[in-house]
Amino acid sequence: MTSMTAKLLTTAIAVTFAGEALATEWNVSVWGSRRAFTEHVHKLAELVEEKSDGDFTMNISYGGLSNNTENLDGISIGAFEMAQFCAGYHPDKNRAITVLELPFLGVSNLEEEVAVSHAIYDHPAVADEMAQWNAKMVMTSPMPQYNIVGTGEPRDELSEFDGMRVRATGGLGEAFSAVGAVPTSVTSSEAYQAMESGVVDTVAFAQHAHLSFGTINRADWWTANLNPGTVNCPIVVNIDAYEMLSDEEKAIFDESVDEAIDHYLENYGELLQRWDEVLEEKGVEKVTISDEQLAEFKKVAGDPIHQAWIEEMSAQGLPAQELYDLVFTTLEEHRANN
């Protein structure tokens, strides 16, 4: 081999390794299986890979990297670069965003859920609290109002909720507790087994989760309009990993978030349109709660829980009233512009 050939070969190898060094590969921790709830994660991964010509890729793992309730811990230690979690899994770690899980906030659709969530995520108090876990908020996983499936005779009056064992987390659990139910916070992956074994009588989920985790297959009935609230499940990235991105990669990542959310909303909308067909196929009775019962539920489990949250979080040094008010001003602005 001539010295010139050797030099060219060495240069080629160096360029190859340099190219490999420039490639960015992220691990992403989610749970369950691919479903409407994770479609924006897949879309984001698809977009960044496409826009970077394959130099920025994401490996999405369903439970292989962490337990769902430990995803925030994994982010904090850099075990993976991006993850999804739900505020109700560890409210003490993400106190500020639990305002979004308060019952009866009046959010009426997924677009409003996105607007309200992202307004809260952008608040400095949220950024500061998440920074304690080395986490940066990226986007929400918007879900419709939760409703419950149950076995046996339908429960369409509040008096029938007394003693009812329900899978519900966060503010939803508090709402059901206020009317005498007994909430349990088993994870979504454990909900079917809890229902099958009789640990719970009912399960509160959004529609996609009733499908994905099979609880609809155990159900005799579903409440069509209870709508007590929903849970809030952000996508976060490890701050160090984000800061290590090149300026171009950051731009690609940031500009792809809205596109990923738009894809999520379109996909989830199709699921909601099919929901009545799903109920009919599975022989699940649709139960409608009367306006009087709903008003009573809101009276008992709405304002009192809201005020208790404001007082508790204010005592812990959070700008609770400011966060709470931001929810409603954002709703007003969103509705005025749409």
Rank of each mutant, 00 (worst) to 15 (best):
T151D: 00
M137A: 01
L265Y: 04
H118V: 06
E49I: 01
S76E: 08
L279F: 04
V237F: 01
P91G: 03
I120T: 06
V199K: 14
T169W: 05
Y264C: 11
F297G: 07
M137I: 02
A119V: 02
F85Y: 13
F297W: 10
S197G: 00
G63Q: 08
M139C: 02
N147T: 06
G198K: 00
P304T: 14
E113M: 04
I97R: 11
H90D: 13
A87T: 09
E296P: 00
V278S: 05
V257P: 01
K7V: 02
A181F: 07
H42Y: 14
A23M: 02
L279A: 06
E243C: 10
M58T: 05
E81F: 07
G152L: 05
G106S: 04
E112P: 12
I97C: 07
Y121M: 14
I148E: 07
F161V: 10
R335K: 15
S52Q: 10
A295V: 07
N94T: 12
P183Y: 08
F85N: 02
M58E: 07
L22F: 15
Q307W: 04
A181I: 12
A119G: 02
T202E: 00
G19W: 09
I239L: 06
W221P: 06
Q293D: 09
S256P: 07
S197Y: 06
T230H: 09
N94F: 00
E101C: 12
E111T: 11
K282A: 07
T223M: 11
Q84G: 02
E249H: 14
V15A: 10
D122S: 15
W26S: 11
F161I: 13
V203W: 04
P154C: 12
Q84F: 02
K298D: 05
T187P: 01
G106H: 09
V107F: 07
L272N: 12
A87C: 04
G74L: 00
Q132M: 11
I216G: 10
V236F: 11
R155N: 02
A36W: 12
A194K: 00
L211F: 07
G171L: 00
L100V: 03
E111K: 15
E270F: 03
P154Q: 04
S188R: 11
T330G: 03
A206L: 00
A14C: 08
A18H: 11
F85K: 12
H42T: 02
V107M: 14
T69A: 15
E49F: 09
S185Q: 11
T5Q: 13
Y146G: 14
L100M: 13
D162S: 15
T223H: 02
A206N: 07
T330L: 13
A191P: 03
E101M: 05
V182F: 01
L22R: 14
T187Y: 08
A127W: 05
A36K: 01
P154A: 07
E81P: 08
D254N: 14
D240P: 04
D258P: 01
V278C: 04
K299N: 13
I75R: 05
K93F: 01
P154G: 12
L326N: 08
Y146E: 09
H118N: 07
F37E: 09
T329G: 06
N227P: 03
